[in-house]
Design a protein around this nucleic acid. Structure first.
Lengths: 343, 343
DNA sequence: TTGAAAGCGGTACCAT
DNA sequence: ATGGTACCGCTTTCAA
């Protein structure tokens, strides 16, 4: 029961060798078999555990990468996380997740803290991007990969997906099914996805030659189930009698909330009203009815982000690269009558 | 566009003062107003950012706490996480999450790495507990709080809940509703929750004087939706014709999977068969039908864990404490016909 | 108040 | 192959 941790000094002393030899014997430098044995034994005897902080200081780098997301309660980010972890599996890199939450300035603070050497690199998927965040990101000394878009041209590696196009696919799918009065429950407009998904909705409606009734659009206070339900209730109250026959949710969480609201209002999904989501998380696949959604390839985006980072570790001078993935529709029961939980 | 970070040395040089003075001026030691001004200005000029690693080495501690969970895709853990974050909000502690995953030895490795000073403390909620994990935990030099149970008597702070009793509550609820042939889809038996929930089920059935038909019990390969669906299918195939009128799921994820299986089999929930979960995550509340579940007070457990840790930071010598919370039933639509999504 | 210097725990270069 | 030592960047005695 050691209460104080032993240092390498003590190991060296216990083994009767020099500090340098002890270090080499343990980390695998040139050392004789006898030396290695002696030191190893001594290390075990005194209960030696190397100090990560000291090592990091000397080596100039923690072997830690941070993954920052707004809401880890969103399975979308969990999918990214898992993919990143897999990619880092044999690299000796420790991935740790931090949630940044609603406040952009909190995110900015996190990004800035990276320059203090809290981690060797950052993978970040920000919902809201402010000028201050853009600045913080461009002032970053450590490598960073952004999953999402940044608006300005910050010279960093990025992984993108056109989520506006994703909404467009959803709308077109609904139209092809004969739905005409298609509402849209979006997430907050002060987020990047909120803005681009709005564009997608408007573009699709316009392309179909359908006049967009402003009251068919509703904005949830957040990309969450709860907010989706509240917003769903509002849009139903406001234009339920106007023949609304479909609602596009800004993401899967919103879609779940919207369906909640529909069911509570006595509407059948999809018979009376069709609902779609975006993200293709497990929520969508396992809900009742299973939810038609548009995959944003979260796992693939996570994988690409990790690879981009690894490539930059290899060659820090390579020019910033942007990888892009394509959204793809996943049709399920919330838009087409048919089997429940087709998967 | 600084490519190299400036050190305190350079700040001192730029300000024409000593290293010591620069340090004091920046961190708030005794320094004259003029000195502070001079140094601050110099720091800004050279773009100085303190190095967290060096500071940690000198101060003997990163201000970082690790939260380790098996599956961050389970909202149960997300609830704990949020509560912990809230508790740490004003403490200057950075919380970072690491997922340990299926393999116990991976968890053991993580725990051991704590002794290398990767973090100042650990909050861990392990699903599977092996002797090696128990040993690793008791050999830990840094403070640790375990959310869950450990079996042996490892002298660490703990937050517990009797999840066996939770299942018991679920079974009793079903019985009070007139259900008699109650099946149980459990998680893996090599997990602590799996074992205690099994006891809970058996105890409740016995207390009701109902002979437990072994074939009414099924074990999912994991506490996930997918595994729940597969296990649900199995139990339905095996004894659907035996008048099964309720299934208790080992947790909410399993319950969702079970309902998926029931619906796919053409069964109506709760009319033909009632289903319950455990954890009271948002899944349960927002599913269709809303799922009756037993709250394990995850948020409260997270809060308690954080407080226990804070208390130990205050007084490292205090005896290990175990906080306990009580499970409580949350009745919803998956067991009682009635409104959809009563919440 | 200020400066010089001793570490915090390792790693790696330099001779030997 | 081994030992001596400088040093990673910062904080904190100790004197002046």
């Amino acid at each position: 029961m050691t209460i104080e941790r032993a240092t390498l000094h003590e190991v060296a002393a216990a083994a009767g060798v020099s500090l340098a030899s002890a270090s080499r014997a343990l980390t695998g430098g040139s050392a004789s078999v006898a030396m290695v044995q002696k030191v190893r034994r001594a290390a075990r005897r005194v209960g030696y555990v190397p100090d990560a902080t000291a090592r990091s200081l000397r080596l100039g780098g923690t072997r830690q990468v941070l993954f920052a997301v707004d809401d880890i309660g969103n399975l979308n980010y969990v999918a990214m996380l898992r993919a990143i972890e897999r990619e880092f599996a044999d690299t000796g890199i420790r991935l740790s997740v931090t949630t940044t939450g609603r406040d952009v300035e909190q995110t900015v603070a996190l990004v800035q803290s990276m320059n203090m050497g809290v981690g060797d690199a950052l993978i970040i998927s920000p919902l809201r991007v402010s000028p201050s965040l853009r600045r913080a990101l461009s002032e970053l000394i450590v490598p960073v990969v952004v999953i999402g878009s940044l608006q300005g041209n910050v010279p960093v590696d990025m992984v993108r997906v056109d989520s506006g196009h994703a909404v467009q696919l959803a709308v077109e799918h609904l139209q092809s099914l004969g739905r005409r009065r298609i509402g849209f429950v979006n997430g907050p407009l002060n987020t990047n996805p909120g803005v681009s998904r709005r564009h997608g909705y408007l573009a699709a409606m316009e392309a179909a030659g359908i006049a967009v009734d402003g009251c068919f659009m509703e904005i949830a206070t957040d990309f969450t189930i709860k907010a989706g339900r509240a917003a769903g209730q509002r849009i139903l109250d406001r234009c339920g009698e106007m023949g609304l026959d479909a609602i596009v949710g800004g993401n899967d969480l919103l879609a779940v909330g919207i369906i909640n609201a529909c069911l509570a209002a006595g509407l059948r999904v999809p018979h009376d009203i069709a609902v779609t989501g975006v993200d293709d998380t497990e929520y969508a696949a396992s809900y009742n009815p299973s939810i038609t959604t548009v995959s944003l390839q979260s796992a693939e985006r996570g994988r690409l982000a990790a690879q981009l980072l690894l490539a930059r570790f290899e060659d820090p001078t390579r020019p910033p690269e942007t990888a892009t993935v394509m959204p793809s529709l996943v049709a399920r029961s919330s838009t087409q009558s048919g089997d429940v939980n087709v998967d």
